[in-house]
Design a protein around this nucleic acid. Sequence first.
DNA 1: CACTACACATGCACG
DNA 2: ATGTGTAGTG
Length: 666
Amino acid sequence: MENPSGLNDRQMEAVHAVEGPLLILAGAGSGKTTVITRRISHMISSGIPAPSILAVTFTNKAAREMLQRVKTMFPGKVPMPHISTFHSFGAQMLRESIESIGFRKNFTIYDSQDQISLIKETAREIGLKLEALDLDGTAQLFSAVETGRTPWTGQEKHIRELFDEYRKNLQIYNAVDFDDLIMLPIRILSEVEEVRELYRSRFHYLMVDEFQDTSEAQYRLLKLLGEGCGNVCVVGDDDQSIYSWRGANYENILRFEKDFPAFKEIKLEQNYRSTKQILRVANRIIANNSNRKGKELWTGAQEGEPIELYMAESERKEAEFIVSKIRVLKIRHSLQFHDFGVLLRANHLTRAIEEEFLKENIPYQVSGGMSFFERKEVRDILSYLRVIVNPDDDVSLLRIANTPRRGIGKKVIENLVALSAQKECSLYSAMTVLRDSGQKELDGSHSSQSPVAEFLSLMDDYREKLQTPGKAAETVKALVDEIDYWGHLVQEHKDQDLARIKLSNVESLMGSVEDYEKNPDVVHPSIQDYLTRVSLASRDDIGDKDAQGRVNLSTIHAAKGLEFPVVFIAGVEKDIIPHGKALEERDTNVEEERRLFYVAVTRAKQKLFLSTCATRRFRGKPVTAYPSPFLEEIPKESLVVIEEEEEADTSQSADFLTEMRKRFLE
DNA sequence: CACTACACATGCACG
DNA sequence: ATGTGTAGTG
């Protein structure tokens, strides 16, 4: 570092350019996070009120870490800058002002799973054939249309009808989907002047991290907030743009230049992360892309060791190779498990490696993939809470109405659906209508008690109970007992161990409610706020507290912004990276796949391993795999190919001996 | 009407 | 390998 502040000149310049629009092009490992936090703390020190600063990051984790760093710089300072993701900013804004466009404040946030359930439900309602419908594709189309990325292209008349019904249902259910978290704030800010003024007077300094991954809609939101004060700072790297599939558009950089013509541009090109060897390879790879801003990273770091490529026979061998390298390097360089990152293109590729890690007792942590909150049993309980908070939430209601079984079966639901269609109301309202009308023949009653009425009184009862502050965790536990969820799990699974695991997940959920409730940073804890957080939680939000001492197994996407002394990129194969599906979609996607590979390579500080398999299991069957064409873009002299496995004995004790031997020979 | 079993299709990335 | 839809059974 060049001067006493610990920052180089360019970084200093970025920290001090507080007023007016600013574009920071920050290469991988160029100290971007440091610059952003230093810039915030510089602003606060120079008298700018902290709450007038709004910083938007890409993940909750990044937001938390940034806030933490600022807090450390100003211990005890009370109003802090607002630091969050776009989505959680949107959610908070909606909690405050959604009534101005006709929703109620207790709205539910539907994630992509809920969204798909709702599309399915809606399709059923309007009599669409489900088998003819690609639900995932439809959800993606809806999102593209909603955010203005794709216009309707004619022909799909029934799809448009489905879309309109879907939107209508969201309104009836008092629910918003992920896209709404961006689109509705845009609508409010454009249409409701008071709210626009309120927000513009609240935030005078805006900052966006990972700008290359913001969508056009997010950019519009940013522009609406920032065009009043003009103090908008965006930080990004076009070479690391890897989210175009969900609307990210690095052309936002061009838009920014056009919308804020007085902008100042600063390039950060000195890399503080990787060795010369690693950086050289990264530069060579990315040089094959054509659409670039143009940037050449350099480093003053040591030359380092060459990159190694291991060509394994099978996934199994690949995993064994990774394990043995981790063992050896860990001892040889006194590393910890968390100094290793294993990066993969897709989630399911983690499986083979996970198995090996389990077998070999390597502690690991998976980021990406199924999150805790996506587990069936966890969603069940969360659905109860969601219905309690927002009874009109039909998606959650359908999930729990008969879980555990309570006699509200298909027939009863059908009756309720008919009734709700007729009254244009939610199922819950239909339930109350049914109860009050006393039409016992419709509600599944066998004896004197009506299951529908009982269900309603259960919900009312717990809605009441959850009002008591500080008792949420306790109340949730009481609810789980009262519905006998344990009995339900036991009944559903003949594998009792599985049932026990699921119950322990439910217990973890209750633990998370308790943690939330006791968290001193939460000013007014409520179940509604808890549910909002959960809906916005990213996949690695839970468990990152004990990431210490574990190997990080992660998708490349989820590894963005992270770094490790030792990185393995596994499955560097044709059709994996670049991904076959991605290339099918658009031929320009090769460049994004190459950026993805570039991101993966630039995570490594000291040592980088690449690996491929000759055969890989696909849909249960072994299939021949080929090395990735990207490997040919790496200069031969920068790559050492490990032809044969050095007879890695995978039994732990033998391995330990080998390591000891190596250690003493050095 | 509810539950079980079996067949079937399907697997890129994320807030 | 997993989830979902459906047909068939109690």
